Simulated assay, not measured.
Amino acid sequence: MNQREVIDTLSFQAKIEPSFTQLVWQKLEEENREFFEAYHVRLILKNQILVFNRLLEKQVELMQRACPSGVAAVPHPNGSNSSCMSI
Results as ranks from 00 to 15, higher is better:
51 V>F: 05
27 K>T: 08
34 E>T: 06
34 E>M: 04
49 I>E: 15
20 F>Q: 10
40 H>D: 11
48 Q>H: 10
43 L>V: 02
44 I>W: 08
19 S>F: 05
34 E>H: 01
33 R>Y: 05
46 K>D: 13
26 Q>H: 07
22 Q>W: 03
40 H>K: 15
21 T>A: 05
49 I>D: 10
37 E>F: 06
42 R>P: 02
35 F>Y: 14
36 F>R: 01
47 N>T: 10
33 R>I: 07
23 L>N: 10
36 F>I: 04
41 V>G: 07
33 R>K: 15
45 L>N: 11
42 R>T: 06
28 L>M: 12
51 V>M: 05
37 E>R: 13
50 L>E: 15
25 W>V: 02
21 T>E: 01
32 N>F: 02
49 I>R: 12
35 F>H: 04
48 Q>F: 07
38 A>K: 15
20 F>G: 06
24 V>M: 08
51 V>S: 06
31 E>H: 06
25 W>A: 00
34 E>L: 05
41 V>H: 13
31 E>D: 09
22 Q>Y: 06
49 I>P: 05
26 Q>G: 05
28 L>E: 06
46 K>I: 08
34 E>S: 10
49 I>K: 14
35 F>L: 09
47 N>E: 15
38 A>G: 07
20 F>Y: 15
27 K>D: 08
51 V>A: 08
50 L>A: 12
21 T>K: 00
46 K>N: 13
37 E>M: 07
21 T>C: 07
41 V>N: 11
40 H>L: 08
34 E>R: 04
22 Q>K: 12
42 R>S: 09
46 K>M: 09
40 H>R: 14
37 E>T: 11
19 S>L: 11
20 F>A: 09
50 L>G: 07
19 S>N: 11
36 F>K: 03
24 V>K: 06
48 Q>Y: 09
41 V>D: 14
37 E>I: 10
25 W>K: 00
41 V>P: 04
21 T>D: 01
47 N>S: 14
50 L>H: 09
46 K>S: 12
48 Q>P: 02
35 F>T: 05
40 H>I: 05
26 Q>Y: 03
38 A>R: 10
46 K>W: 09
41 V>E: 15
33 R>V: 08
30 E>F: 04
21 T>L: 03
32 N>T: 02
44 I>Q: 14
23 L>H: 10
30 E>W: 02
45 L>F: 09
26 Q>I: 04
41 V>Y: 11
27 K>V: 13
27 K>C: 05
39 Y>T: 03
32 N>G: 00
42 R>H: 11
29 E>Y: 01
27 K>P: 02
24 V>W: 04
